[in-house]
């Protein structure tokens, strides 16, 4: 449908106002909310994600596109609920204790939301206790941890250990990422997946949920 292609195209350009107007028009035309979400908004976000992976666009373009997606999603939410459309999965996300960096985490959130995942963003400087409490409250399939500093990355192990101590480690997959993180570090702390960038993290989350 042309209107869904337009939604996708305007989203890729970060035109929030136009995306919002078109989403409203699509709703008014009786197009199913699920189709507007998947074939319009998520389609546009996935295209931007691919371009980001190929270095054709950069972080600012992704943020602007995500802002446009949020504008459209806000209109769609009540219609999705009425239609019984559920998120692909649920992720609890945060930057670990002692670390205030949030750009990488925010990108991961946007990319994951672009894949239809519901993301509970706990913010920055998040303690292991808060991650455990969030898992107990929200029952996610994935806990995603971010750290930018070598001085804070060990906190990821603290979170993994806290999930184990709370008896809920087996209920979630733990993903980790950030500038100093490596696959070997991931293995050494008992996390389930390391990804090197936000686009890979969103793909990885889908892979873990659908496995």
């Amino acid at each position: 449908m042309a209107i869904l292609e337009d939604i996708s195209a305007f989203l890729q350009k970060g035109k929030a106002k136009e995306v919002k107007e078109l989403v409203q028009q699509a709703i008014d035309q009786g197009i199913p909310a699920k189709s507007i979400l998947e074939d319009g908004l998520m389609n546009g976000m996935n295209i931007i994600g691919g371009k980001f992976k190929r270095n054709e666009v950069y972080v600012p373009e992704v943020l602007i596109a995500a802002r446009a997606m949020n504008a459209g999603t806000a209109l769609l939410k009540p219609h999705l609920a009425t239609a019984g459309v559920k998120a692909t999965g649920k992720v609890v996300l945060g930057t670990v204790k002692g670390d205030l960096h949030d750009i990488g985490k925010n990108l991961v959130r946007m990319m994951m939301e672009g894949k239809g995942l519901e993301v509970i963003d706990l913010g920055v400087d998040v303690s292991a206790e808060k991650f455990v409490a969030a898992v107990n409250e929200h029952k996610p399939q994935i806990v995603a941890l971010s750290a930018l500093l070598t001085t804070t990355m060990n906190e990821m192990k603290t979170v993994v250990d806290a999930l184990t101590a709370a008896g809920i480690r087996k209920t979630v997959k733990v993903m980790i990422g950030g500038a100093p993180i490596t696959q070997s570090f991931c293995t050494s702390i008992g996390a389930d997946m390391y990804t090197s960038d936000a686009a890979a993290a969103s793909d990885g989350a889908i892979e873990l949920i659908t496995a």
Binding site: V57, Y58, V59, P60, E61, I103
Partner: peptide, 9 residues
Amino acid sequence: NLVYFSPNQ
């Protein structure tokens, strides 16, 4: 750096 500025722009 490239996180804050788009070279395209």
